[in-house]
Design a protein around this nucleic acid. Structure first.
Lengths: 166, 166
DNA sequence: TAGTTTGGTTGGCATTGCGAACCATGTCAA
DNA sequence: TTGACATGGTTCGCAATGCCAACCAAACTA
């Protein structure tokens, strides 16, 4: 232990620190919950996204910030486990869209519950009033980085807070 | 497609959703910033931890929730790049402790700045007053949740504003 | 002194993720 | 219509993550 203090000249933004720490904490929970079901963080995210969507491979990849080729492998493995399936798009015969199977949906719901439960010890430290205020304060921070409002005029009726967004 | 509507019976906790979305957002930023310097999320975290510590391999592994063997490889690669180094512990000749090199420290500071800058578009949506309240509201949520194990006796008096904490 | 625990490393394996190469389908223009 | 090019996905090869099991060395215990 070199020093104990917050590194002297180090620029330190309390909010940034809190956000980063919180992010790692949440990711830790997600990772653990996922691991209990043999699911990686990314798989978890994919499932969350598919909860109410039926996107194409490329949409998925873009949304997750991954390469198309990465998606192939990811979907391959999940499909092999029967959690989701590939379908042919009617509009574009090149396109492949992905959707949860019944088993996948069921698992996803269970996972969501587990995540909530796992976060409870943390979120439970706030009273309902505080929880509400925190939620509202975070809202504006959630950037629409992906901005592109899905040119697809088909599905996606209203955007919803998903287990995995942005 | 199974259903089209916002998944009827789906339990949806606004705060959990916000936290998870925010976590992914922050991780996205960290990943990107790290990638620009050929650093993985984990590497980034290691650097952040070493900013003001000189832990042993095992401490590091425990803190990050990784296996010792994973740490070996991680440190190997970072050491090969000259960002950190291994030292022999005086107390225990088996132990190996890790610390940043000058280059590593410099890079870490730069990274921190970049992360702050990258988050600015998001955090900047709040006015100083809101930023302050948000920081304070997150604070209580930050604590050993993952562990579920040891109830840290220390109420975390002076939290360490680290780039990576647990 | 033997037996066990603890600290790290190594090797093997699956997953993640990227880039490049490669088909198949779509689009646009001449 | 026919190219020429763009787009959607897959496959292959490669590096990094991360786990587990096996192993060595130093420390602790009886």
């Amino acid at each position: 232990m070199t020093t104990d203090e917050p590194a002297a000249g180090v620029s330190t933004d309390p909010l940034v620190d809190a956000l980063v720490r919180n992010a790692f904490q949440v990711m830790g929970v997600l990772t653990r919950v996922g691991a209990e079901h043999d699911l990686s963080l990314t798989q978890l995210r994919v499932l969350g996204l598919l909860r109410d969507r039926r996107p194409r491979m490329t949409e998925l990849a873009t949304f997750l910030g991954l390469d198309k080729s990465t998606m192939s492998g990811l979907i391959d493995r999940a499909e092999r486990r029967g959690l989701l399936a590939r379908g042919k798009s009617a509009e574009d015969r090149r396109a492949v869209d992905v959707f949860l199977t019944a088993a996948g949906l069921e698992l996803t719901e269970r996972l969501y519950g587990e995540v909530r439960a796992a976060l409870l010890p943390a979120t439970g430290r706030l009273d309902p009033e505080q929880r509400h205020r925190l939620t509202e304060l975070i809202e504006p921070v959630l950037s629409p980085v992906t901005g592109a409002g899905e040119p697809s005029p088909k599905r996606t009726p209203a955007r919803r807070p998903e287990l995995a967004a942005d």
